Every structure is written in C-alpha cells, then in structure tokens.
Computed example of a mutant assay.
Amino acid sequence: MFSRWPRLAQLAQRYNLGPLFSEIKEKAGVILQAGCIVYVFREYCMEVSVCMGPSMLPTFNTRGDVLLLEHLSTHFGRIGVGDVVLARSMQNPKQIVCKRVLGLEGDEVRIPQSTQLGPGRTVVVPKGHVWLQGDNFINSTDSRHYGPVPYALLRGRAFLKVWPLHEAGLISSQIPDFYHRI
C-alpha cells in the first residue's frame, strides 16, 4: 500500500530539498550542543530550586522561596555543619527536601526528649552520612524520624535566596540560636 508513496530521498531530490535538510541538520546540532551544555551546568555546577513547606521556618517561607543551589560542594565533599542542602527524601525518592546539616560523619548529635520522638538520645552519624534537620523543630520530618542520610542523596548546597526579592541575599551557614536552646 505504501509503495505508491515516494520515498523521502526521492522527494528531496525532486524538489531540491538538500539545502533545507542540511540547514535543519545544522540547527539540530546547535540545539543539541546547547542542551548538553545546559544539562551539564545544571547537573554539576548550579541550578535554581524552590524550597517550600513549613519545615524550614523561619529561614524560608512556607509558600516557597527561590534559591540558587550549587553542586560543587557536594561533589568535592565540602558540605559543612550549618549548610542548607537539598536532598532526595529518604521516605519518597521522587521528592526533594530542604534541610540544614547538623552533623557530619563521626559527629554526635543530641536529640532532645519530645512527645512525638520519645526520650532524648545521642546519635553518632555513621561514615558516609549526614544528619539533616529542618529549622522548624516542631514541624519537620527529618533525620530525627528516619535517621542519618547517605551523603549520595545530597543534591547541592543552597547559597543564595533570590525570591522573594525583599528577602534576597546569601543564606547563612551559621546554626540558628534556637538549636542551642533545645
């Protein structure tokens, strides 16, 4: 049935479409190269991300703040205590969570007593893991619930808040005072 239809090559030859095809091929190559550059930059250098929800109050708003996230710190093992990071959720790998690093491998982290988490305890962060907690101690599902997070799940370090504009600026890596009162 399809034998009556002329082949694409025959059409190209008949209507002199060679220059059009070579221009399309050239443009597709440029678009492919640009896409690869954007992908590599976003995956290994820097990207824009949104942090929303109550777990990082008062540092970030519940409706969402737009952040710049850099990946070099996680690739080279330069994450420190106090840094705000984005990581794959331990409970749902399709979800990304925004938390503060409160312990690196070998650190002892004290979990105070609470009605939700039970009696207080001290946890030693195992090798290759970090301890993540939200700044909103009362309303955050974090390492206190699911334990230390493998370093490989870290996506990057948030270093700049760009939106809302009136709150734009560098994100502090200093542990907020309210952690010391717990």
Results as ranks from 00 to 15, higher is better:
S3G: 09
W5D: 10
P6M: 12
R7Q: 13
L8G: 12
L8V: 14
Q10A: 12
L11D: 12
L11V: 08
Q13R: 15
Q13Y: 09
R14P: 02
R14D: 07
Y15C: 03
N16Y: 07
G18Q: 13
L20P: 00
E23C: 01
E23A: 12
I24P: 01
K25G: 04
K25I: 00
K27L: 10
I31F: 11
L32S: 11
Q33H: 06
A34K: 05
A34L: 13
V38L: 14
Y39I: 04
F41V: 09
F41E: 02
F41D: 02
R42Y: 02
M46A: 10
C51A: 15
M52D: 13
M52F: 14
G53M: 12
P54V: 08
P54C: 08
S55W: 11
P58W: 13
T59Q: 02
F60T: 03
R63K: 14
V66Q: 12
H75F: 15
F76P: 02
R78H: 13
A87E: 04
R88K: 13
R88Q: 08
M90L: 11
Q91P: 01
P93H: 07
P93V: 02
K94Q: 12
Q95I: 05
Q95E: 10
I96N: 08
C98L: 01
C98Q: 02
R100M: 03
V101L: 03
G103L: 00
L104R: 04
L104T: 02
G106W: 01
Q113A: 06
S114E: 02
S114D: 06
Q116P: 01
L117V: 00
G120M: 07
R121N: 03
V124E: 10
V125K: 11
K127L: 02
G128H: 09
V130W: 06
W131G: 03
L132N: 05
L132A: 04
Q133V: 03
Q133R: 10
N139Y: 14
S140G: 08
D142W: 11
Y146H: 15
Y146C: 06
G147W: 12
G147Q: 10
V149E: 08
P150Q: 13
Y151K: 12
A152F: 02
L153E: 06
L153W: 11
G156D: 06
G156V: 00
A158N: 07
L160F: 14
K161F: 04
V162M: 07
P164W: 14
A168F: 11
G169F: 09
L170I: 09
I171Q: 05
I171P: 02
S173I: 01
Q174W: 03
H180K: 14
I182T: 11
I182E: 12
